[in-house]
Amino acid sequence: MSTTSIPAPRTGYSRHKSTRSKFEMFAWLFMRISGVVLVILIFGHLFVNLWVGDGVQAIDFGFVAGKWASPFWQIWDLLMLWLAMLHGTNGLRTIIMDYSEKPSTRMALQVILYIAAVIVIVLGTLVIFTFDPCPAGADPSVLAEFCKA
């Protein structure tokens, strides 16, 4: 009978050191609050775009330009963009934390996620604030009413 070598003693189980950070608490709280606010924002958005007046038939360049000429809808859409993106990003972050086993996979997925989130948030914010409702030289038939004045 062959002699079996004695296995190395267990290296013990190492828990992560406590971080003493409140980040996870605020992330958890943010998910609840942004979820409730998003329900109002999204259903308000759907109601105004698809239901009021001519409904879905009214949506064209002029309709969007008209909405973004008003600071109310600029802030509404900005809030919706930021809350939805941060809510979704944090949700994906928790899924990555829960299901990726190798630290390298976890890191790679998180980097991709954060880059994607930053690109969408920056681009979206830029569009909302730099949007020109009456571009010069455009076909006047697609522009909003107030551009002709």
Partner: peptide, 14 residues
């Protein structure tokens, strides 16, 4: 509560 407010504490409960 301080211990459980950690990164690996109650907030990881889904």
């Amino acid at each position: 509560l301080e211990v459980l407010n950690d990164k690996e504490g109650v907030w990881r409960c889904r």
